[in-house]
Computed example of a mutant assay.
Amino acid sequence: GCNVPNNPGPTVNVPAEAIQQVVGSVDDQNLVLVKFGAVWCGPCQEVDKELASLEPTLPEQVRVVKIDVNEQPEVASKFGIEGIPRMFLVRNGQVLADEVGYRSESELRNWVASYQ
């Protein structure tokens, strides 16, 4: 379907230092899509493919950061990761929204656009 998700906002309260660890600065005005996944997770690989085709078309002020939950478990736990793939939109050290599970390129594009 083409339903625009009603953006209920984030379901987690992520500590600022965890966000800073991921995006580099809590003063970052850019929108950052943070994706948590793992190499053994099929849907994560699918999301990576969608992100790969989405990334070149995103505006300059939107960045994508990928985190492997096996390589950075402490970051994953600070973000409250239980299921992957899990994606967050972050700006100014704030989590604006989060999504769990596979999303297509067009879904991701609409999601990002609704927060730009």
Score class of each variant (00 low, 15 high):
V112W: 03
P43S: 13
A16D: 10
V62S: 04
D28N: 13
V100S: 07
G37T: 06
P15V: 07
Q72Y: 13
G9F: 11
C41D: 11
G101W: 09
E60S: 15
S25I: 04
S53I: 12
F79N: 01
G24R: 10
V69N: 09
T57S: 11
Y102I: 05
L51C: 11
E60R: 07
L89S: 00
V95D: 03
N13T: 11
A76S: 12
S25R: 12
V26P: 08
N6S: 14
Y102N: 03
G37F: 09
G83A: 11
W40G: 10
S25C: 02
K66I: 12
E107W: 00
V22F: 12
K78V: 01
C41S: 15
K66R: 13
V32Y: 00
E74R: 05
G9C: 07
V69D: 06
G1E: 10
L54Y: 06
T11E: 06
V95N: 05
A97Q: 10
R103L: 08
T57A: 14
D27E: 09
G42N: 09
V47N: 11
M87D: 02
V90C: 09
N6I: 05
F88C: 02
I67G: 00
T11S: 08
R91A: 04
V112I: 14
A38M: 11
V39E: 07
D68F: 02
P43C: 12
R86W: 03
E82K: 00
V39N: 10
V65G: 08
P43H: 11
V22C: 07
C41H: 11
G42V: 05
S114Y: 04
L96I: 10
D48K: 15
R86E: 15
Q45R: 09
N110H: 14
N110E: 13
L108H: 06
D28L: 01
V65T: 14
P10D: 02
E99A: 08
G24N: 10
K35E: 15
C2F: 07
T11M: 02
G24H: 13
G42P: 02
V65A: 12
N110I: 06
P59R: 09
A113M: 08
A97I: 00
W111F: 03
I81S: 14
A113W: 02
V47Q: 12
V95K: 04
S114R: 04
M87F: 01
V95F: 04
A18F: 11
F79I: 02
I81W: 06
V4T: 15
E99G: 01
R103I: 00
G80N: 08
E105S: 12
P15Q: 10
N3G: 15
N30E: 05
Q116L: 12
V69G: 13
E82M: 06
M87S: 15
E99V: 12
E105H: 09
N13G: 13
K78Q: 14
V12D: 08
L108G: 05
P73T: 07
V75W: 07
S77M: 13
Q20C: 01
R63F: 03
E99Y: 10
V75D: 03
D68P: 00
Q72F: 08
Q94W: 01
D98R: 06
E50K: 08
L58V: 03
G24C: 10
P10G: 05
N7D: 14
P85F: 05
F36L: 03
T11K: 07
P73A: 04
G37C: 09
S104Y: 00
G9H: 11
G9Q: 12
V23G: 02
P8S: 14
G80C: 05
P8T: 14
K66G: 06
E105P: 04
V39G: 14
